[in-house]
Design a protein around this nucleic acid. Structure first.
Lengths: 103, 103
DNA sequence: TTGACAATATCGAGTGTCGATATTATGATG
DNA sequence: CATCATAATATCGACACTCGATATTGTCAA
């Protein structure tokens, strides 16, 4: 399991996982997503915390430390594989686009 | 209007629009999406017809002919612009990925 | 004129998104 | 130590998309 769900990542999911290639807590992730995307993407708390739960359940990320209320996470091997798959999917979409329209 | 919605296209939306760079009716679109994606993507009728309505409402596509029950559509300039925007978004996601992980 | 088929349309359940708001733990201050 | 501001996480309801199963409807052949 864990790979049945999330066959295709949404944009917020993709950036959350990208942020978690370094250990981060929730608010750090929001900040890092903004940085990584050059300000293009902003993930709201509703999306973020819902996804953190779901990702942890599915071993896509794992909790590292929990000091007080602050919980930090990092991506797992499974999560990295998901990012790679997503990267390939994006490439495929671009290729299929280029084959059918002049961009 | 018409450009407030659909800032980011989903994978099915993207392929439906790509298919409609040629005049097509609904079932033709399903077939063409399969071809264009090399068999990777299959859009179901629920998704397809819901989207055709929404796209037509928003002038992203327009009806060309209606012979009997069969309705054909083609993408509009607005739709082409949306595809271009989506193409840029995909490129940005790929770039942001490459900057943060070794694919 | 009826029946098979082709094409479109609808439905309900599931999932993700979002901002607004609520909750809770911590540390500083008096 | 009490309490209060703040930081961080959690929850909520409304909305949008996806999907397959099923229903509807128009056309043509016999």
């Amino acid at each position: 399991m864990a790979r049945e769900q999330f066959q295709t990542l949404t944009e917020p999911m993709y950036y959350i996982l990208l942020a978690l290639t370094r250990e981060c807590c929730g608010v750090d992730i929001m900040e890092r997503v903004r940085q990584i995307s050059g300000g293009r993407i902003k993930v709201g708390p509703g999306t973020l915390y819902a996804m953190l739960s779901k990702f942890e359940e599915n071993n896509v990320i794992k909790k590292t430390t929990e000091t007080g209320r602050r919980k930090s996470y990092i991506i797992t091997e499974t999560g990295i594989q998901m990012l790679k798959d997503e990267y390939e999917r994006l490439k495929a979409m671009i290729r299929d686009g280029e084959d059918n329209i002049d961009f």
